[in-house]
Deep mutational scan, measured.
Amino acid sequence: DEIHIHFNGVTIEFRGLTEEAKKALEEAIKRGASEEELKELARRLIK
């Protein structure tokens, strides 16, 4: 299970995320999180 985020022309790929983690990332994107914020969020979620 993986998710691809297209962000300002950059694709960020995450693997092994739970549904909750995906929802958290989607919410962050909707509120306009920066690419760095998304990566940091993903790091926290994957652990």
Rank of each mutant, 00 (worst) to 15 (best):
L45Y: 13
K47P: 11
A28I: 07
K30L: 11
E35M: 14
E40H: 05
H6A: 05
E37V: 06
E35Y: 14
V10C: 10
K30H: 09
F14G: 03
R44L: 13
G16F: 12
E27G: 07
E35C: 07
E13P: 03
E27D: 12
K30Q: 09
E26N: 09
K23E: 09
V10H: 11
E20V: 08
K30W: 15
I46V: 07
R31N: 10
N8L: 07
L45E: 00
A33K: 02
A28C: 05
E36I: 08
K47L: 15
F7Q: 02
E19I: 13
I46H: 06
A28D: 00
A21N: 10
I3D: 06
G16E: 09
D1I: 12
I3K: 03
R43C: 05
N8H: 08
E2F: 15
G9D: 05
L45D: 00
K39D: 03
K47S: 15
L17A: 05
R15K: 12
F14T: 06
G9P: 02
I29Y: 15
L38R: 00
F14W: 06
R31F: 12
E40G: 03
F14V: 08
T18K: 07
G32P: 02
E37F: 08
N8A: 07
E13L: 13
D1C: 14
S34Y: 02
E40Y: 12
I3F: 15
L25E: 00
A21C: 05
R15S: 12
S34K: 04
T18S: 12
A24L: 14
I12C: 03
I3T: 08
A21W: 12
A24N: 04
E40F: 12
S34T: 12
L45C: 05
R44M: 12
E27T: 11
L17T: 01
N8V: 03
L17N: 01
I12Q: 01
G16W: 10
E35W: 14
V10K: 12
E19G: 13
E13F: 15
K23R: 11
L41H: 00
E13Y: 15
H4T: 08
A42C: 04
E27K: 07
V10Y: 05
A33R: 02
E19R: 12
E13A: 11
E26D: 09
R31Q: 09
T11C: 13
V10N: 08
A33M: 11
H6W: 07
T18C: 09
R15H: 11
F7G: 01
E2S: 15
G9C: 04
L25W: 11
I12A: 02
K47C: 08
E19S: 13
E37P: 00
H4V: 09
R43Y: 14
R15F: 13
V10P: 02
I3H: 08
A28H: 04
I46M: 14
E37K: 03
K30P: 00
I5R: 01
E20K: 08
E40Q: 09
E35A: 14
I12M: 04
L45G: 01
K39A: 10
E26W: 15
I29D: 01
E36R: 07
G32I: 02
E36A: 10
I29N: 02
L41F: 07
H6E: 08
A24P: 03
G9S: 03
G16S: 07
R43T: 07
E19M: 14
I5Y: 07
I46G: 05
